[in-house]
């Protein structure tokens, strides 16, 4: 049976992607060994993957969504004469892939007409966990490609965005802050604490420095699909909606009754979030 190579990069999402791979063939995990400089070596990683593909019966390669995965896929496609479909949310047994397009206003089903097919797959996809432990192969790209070797890592600054809050991509509930929620985010944090929710933000909240860049929701941030998304002080620009319109439920708190966010909200609350959120938090704590 054909193998589905799955590049490992983050424990929670790896399990989902391996489970997805298992529905398509024999899941084989690939772990790349290396330091911080790997981020600047997608071509070197792609070449190492291409060697594996040459030696094994590989039908598809699954990569993590995001810039690094897209770049590895892009260069693997170039090397293998194949193509990559990015930001996939589902793959059928016939290797047709579904993704959101046009800022989340449409969906496409597409396939790669070359072998192996290459996909980058989003975290938080809908797939039944697989019990079967997958084979894991380690690759250690030793010598970087000539042009990639010229990129040097000069500094690494660790940032801790999460504290003890759940991760944005796996959280059941996200409370998200917009320009109307700052600079003091205590109302957002109070509701998030009461609900055990993750905190996210609009680009405006990130640009203002209130929310870490890794927690931005939208076209140039994360695409999330929690069970509940609370948008507080967020107007609902199309670039923001692109990242959150797949949420099961949306609650919006905004003092402007004409804010576009209300068009997509299951429950809209017109008012000052500094009053509404603490009152809601108190009610939740009192349950």
């Amino acid at each position: 049976m054909s193998e589905i190579l799955t590049l490992l990069d983050d424990p929670a999402a790896d399990q989902e992607r391996l489970a997805l791979a298992g529905t398509l063939g024999v899941a084989v995990g690939v772990r790349v060994v290396g330091g911080a400089e790997l981020i600047a070596r997608p071509g070197t990683v792609a070449r190492a993957l291409a060697h594996l593909v040459a030696d094994r019966p590989v039908a598809a390669v699954i990569l993590p969504a995001g810039l690094f995965g897209a770049e590895v896929g892009s260069l693997l496609a170039l090397v293998l004469g194949s193509a990559v479909i990015t930001d996939v949310i589902a793959i059928g047994r016939d290797l047709t892939a579904t993704k959101a397009i046009m800022a989340g206003t449409a969906r496409s089903r597409a396939r790669v007409s070359a072998s192996p097919a290459i996909f980058t797959v989003q975290a938080g996809i809908d797939v039944a966990p697989s019990g079967a432990p997958a084979e894991v192969v380690e690759i250690a790209p030793d010598s970087a490609e000539i042009s990639e070797a010229r990129v040097e890592v000069k500094g690494v600054a660790e940032r801790t965005a999460l504290g003890n809050r759940p991760d944005l991509l796996s959280a059941n509930i996200i409370v998200s802050a917009g320009r109307g929620a700052g600079p003091d985010l205590s109302a957002i944090e109070e509701l998030a604490d009461a609900l055990g929710a993750a905190v996210g933000g609009s680009r405006a909240a990130v640009d203002a420095g209130w929310v870490d860049p890794s927690l931005q929701v939208g076209q140039t941030g994360k695409t999330v699909s929690p069970k509940l998304y609370v948008a507080a002080g967020i107007s609902g620009a199309i670039q923001h909606q692109a990242g959150m319109r797949g949420s099961a439920l949306i609650v919006a708190v905004n003092e402007d009754p004409d804010a576009p966010i209300f068009e997509v909200a299951d429950l809209g609350i017109v008012g000052d979030l500094a009053e509404v959120l603490p009152a809601a938090a108190a009610a939740v704590r009192g349950l």
Partner: peptide, 9 residues
């Protein structure tokens, strides 16, 4: 997500 890198070329 958890760090910022300075890269040169």
């Amino acid at each position: 997500d958890t760090r910022s890198l300075e890269l040169t070329a």
